[in-house]
Each structure stands twice: as structure tokens, then as C-alpha cells.
Amino acid sequence: MDLLNAFITLANFVIVPAIAYGSQLALGALGVTLIYGILRFSNFAHGDTMAFGTMITILITWLFQSWGLSLGVFPTALLALPFGIAGCALFVLMTDRAVYRFYRVQKAKPVILVIVSMGVMFIMNGVVRFIIGPDDHAFGDGERFIISARTFREMTGLQEGLAIRTSTGITVITAIIVVAILFWFLNKTRTGKSMRAYSDNEDLALLSGINPERVVMVTWIIVAALATVAGTLYGLDKSFKAFTYFQLLLPIFASAIVGGLGSPVGAIAGGFIIAFSEVLVTYAWKKVLVYALPDGIGPDGLAQLLSTDYKFAVSFLILLIVLLFRPTGLFKGKSV
């Protein structure tokens, strides 16, 4: 029995990756939930918005890298991130002006907007593939570690190593900063409060003199920023591929719904719930169990509940269980 090594193994292969993935999902789900709360539909184009913002960031990163610009220990992509956000915001605002606004003026039913967002999804998907292609792209500046497995072993003298990559650390810190700013904005500023008011009761917001177009514009900008940050962090952590981002839609929707659509706190909770369940259920527990259990009764097999390819199934199962017991998600009522 060696509980310390068991814990380090668990931390290395489960806790750290799940925290990083959870932060990425949470940022993605925040975007979905904001659109749901304020524009009142589920945006099928959100995955592609993330891909678009990330693509801009990548292009700028490459440009900076070719200039030899860097941020020292931090990835160059962080330097390019503001440009990515700006590019993405510009694009979604143009989309809103050219596409969504018409339906808003018509007071179209939300489900019509869902179909509209499918069209936007196709277009964005096409644009991203057109510009950067369908292939995998890495844009980090090579693997970098806050602590590498070897350093950790040397430092602690333990058998197991705990590696924390720079990208993981940056993901978590950036996510915390972004979420803190968002919550401050929504709860403390006049514009943020007006967004919550608009989400709560559109007619009354109108009668209070809140300009819906402004609320919607600010929402899109925030969503573009969230999507770009989420996408860039995901890309730094893993890699960028247009199709993967499209596929992130399911776990992101699942996170947002588990937490309760329209609730920012819920989106964050949902993101971590989904991420942890995915990683826990698809992780091969053998090594941890061998350390944790007394000698001789460790498992023979991999002790993996489900193959990693079923990670979508896990998000979905969690979603189903939550909906069965709490049809409105975990944090209902607390809307944007």
C-alpha cells in the first residue's frame, strides 16, 4: 500500500487534466449560456465560433513567432489572444448585423434562431476550413512544464511523477481571471445589470430604457471573447483541429444544461462535473489501485470503466441523470 504514490498518480492523470479540461468546458458553456439567456436560443455555431477565434489567434501567433516575438516562459499565443478576441468579436458582430438582427426585429421564435444558427455554423465551419484547412495545427512553443515528472520525482523522491504543463497552469489561471471579470461585470456594472435585466424580462427592460441592440452587442462581444479564450486554451492544451472544435459542442451543451441553461454559475459547475466524469470514467485505474490497495489484491485488468472513445457517452449519461432528477439543471432560476 502506498497512498502517497497513488494520490500522485491520480493527480497526474486525472485531477490535473480534468481541471484543465473542466476550465475549457466551463468557458465554452458560459458562452452558450449567455446566448441562451439573452438571445434565447442554443447557438449551434458556438463550437465553430471557438474555432474561428482560435484560428485568428493561431495566425497571429505564427506571425509573432516568425517575427521572433515571444513572452518568455509563456506561450506566444497569449500575446496573440487579444487580436484573436478582436477578430472573433468583429466576425460575430458582423454575423449578428447580417443575420440574427433581422430575426430579432421580427421577434422570431427562439427555435427559428436555432435553425438560423445551423446556417451560421455551416458558414463558419466553411470559413475556418477555407482559411486554415481541416488539419491538425499545434501552435504552442513546444512542450513546457511548470513541473516536469522528472523534476518532481527528484524533488520528492517519490516513485511517481507529477507533471504540470505550462499550458495547464495558464488554462486554470486564465479561466479564473476571465470568470472573475465576467461575474464582476454582470453583477456590478450598469451594463452587466442591464444584460441580466434584459435576460429576465425583455419587455420591462425595454420600458426601463435599456437598449436591446446594445445589450445584444455587448453579449456577442463577451461571447466572442469567452469562445476565443476557451478555444485557444483548449488548442494550447491539446491541438487545434476544426472538426474537434465542432465536436466540443456536445460536452459544452451538456455542461451548460447540467448546470441549468442561462445560469453562469451553473455553466462553470457543469463544465467541471462533465470534465471530471469523463476523465474518471474513462481512466484506467490499474496503477492507482495497485498503489492504493494492499499487495496482492490489485486488479488484473486495466480497471477502466469505459473506453476513452465513450467520453461523449459519459457527458451524455451525466446529463440524462441530472435531467431526470432536476429537469431545469442544477442551478435553476439564477439566470444571466
Binding site: V120, F122, I123, G126, V127, R129
Partner: peptide, 10 residues
């Protein structure tokens, strides 16, 4: 083709 499909739908 993806772009076109989206455009047609919209």
C-alpha cells in the same frame, strides 16, 4: 460546399 450550404439555408 459547407459555406454554400450555410448560405443557402440562410
Amino acid at each position: 460546399r459547407l459555406f454554400t450550404m450555410g448560405l443557402i439555408l440562410l
